[in-house]
């Protein structure tokens, strides 16, 4: 990385951090809107008390707390921003700068993680007060691979959504495909239930898709549930590479197609 790149990264992070701080009030609601896993926890807790699911209520609490954290740090909205830029023509000024516009979006998302952090910690603290059994101390191994997989999950989620966003060059509402994709994401990512509770065939199928690696994989690593680490990393890298190749191809074709609508 060159000195110029480092300076650009530092500047993007500091400016977009300031930008996100402007929305601090809204951030509380955005964080709360990601508390879906905590609702599922209540349901699974009830189920675990009356059936033998292979998970104790405490394990469920830990798992869904980790899912909550994974959701908070992998949330991505680039498709809505990019679609607006293409449709309204505000992509034009960004295309005239000698830097790919994706970096603004990417570091905007990264900066938002830092602004979100205090609110997330506050909610985690509150959650631990309500469910003291959810408190666990991750091992250094779980900590390291949990954080690495969280970062990779965010990058993969960003890359896939940004690839869908490229469709905005041809259709006016590219976010429709993200919403369709979200259906599979909800059920196959481990957001509603740990993958270990899925039927074997469904779980095996899901593990070939990118979805479990966005939530289930980092969450399981954080709480110490058994996962196939090499397979997970290779699958994430493969999906990432595929998304990257498609993304760059669509970007080049899209730019040719772009008419700078409204610009």
């Amino acid at each position: 990385m060159t000195l110029r790149s480092l300076r650009i990264v530092r500047t993007f992070l500091s400016v977009y951090y300031a930008y996100m701080v402007e929305y601090r009030a809204e951030l509380i609601f955005w964080v709360l809107s990601g508390s879906f896993p905590l609702i599922f926890l209540g349901l699974w807790n009830q189920a675990a008390q009356s059936n033998d699911l292979g998970f104790t209520p405490a394990q469920f609490a830990q798992y869904f707390l980790a899912v909550f954290l994974a959701r908070q740090f992998t949330v991505v909205w680039v498709i809505w921003d990019f679609e607006k830029e293409v449709v309204q023509g505000t992509l034009s000024p960004l295309l005239l700068q000698p830097i790919d516009p994706v970096w603004r979006h990417f570091f905007g998302h990264v900066a938002e993680r830092f602004t979100r952090l205090p609110f997330v910690l506050l909610l985690v603290g509150l959650f631990c007060l309500l469910y003291p059994e959810a408190i666990w101390i991750p091992t250094p191994y779980a900590c390291f691979w949990g954080i690495v997989s969280l970062i990779l999950a965010f990058c993969l989620r960003f890359l896939i959504q940004y690839t869908f966003a490229m469709l905005a060059f041809w259709v006016e509402r590219a976010n429709a495909i993200e919403q369709f994709w979200f259906l599979f994401y909800t059920f196959l990512s481990g957001l509603v239930a740990p993958l270990t509770l899925f039927p074997d065939a469904v779980r095996e199928f899901a593990l070939w898709t990118p979805f479990p690696y966005l939530i289930y994989f980092p969450a399981s690593l954080l709480v110490g549930l058994p996962v196939d680490l090499p397979r997970g990393l290779i699958t994430m890298a493969s999906w990432g590479l595929l998304a990257f190749i498609i993304n760059r191809k669509l970007w080049r074709l899209g730019l040719k197609h772009y008419s700078g609508m409204g610009a």
Binding site: I8, F12, Y19, P93, L94, L96, Q97, P98, I99
Partner: peptide, 28 residues
């Protein structure tokens, strides 16, 4: 080159212009 469009803006709406200028300085 540069292109200035009277109806389009590149400055970040919610921040002082100096912040956008900081980005431009780094990019260029």
């Amino acid at each position: 080159i540069t292109l200035v469009m009277g109806q389009k803006q590149q400055l970040i709406w919610d921040l002082p212009a100096l912040d956008s200028l900081k980005i431009n300085a780094a990019v260029y």
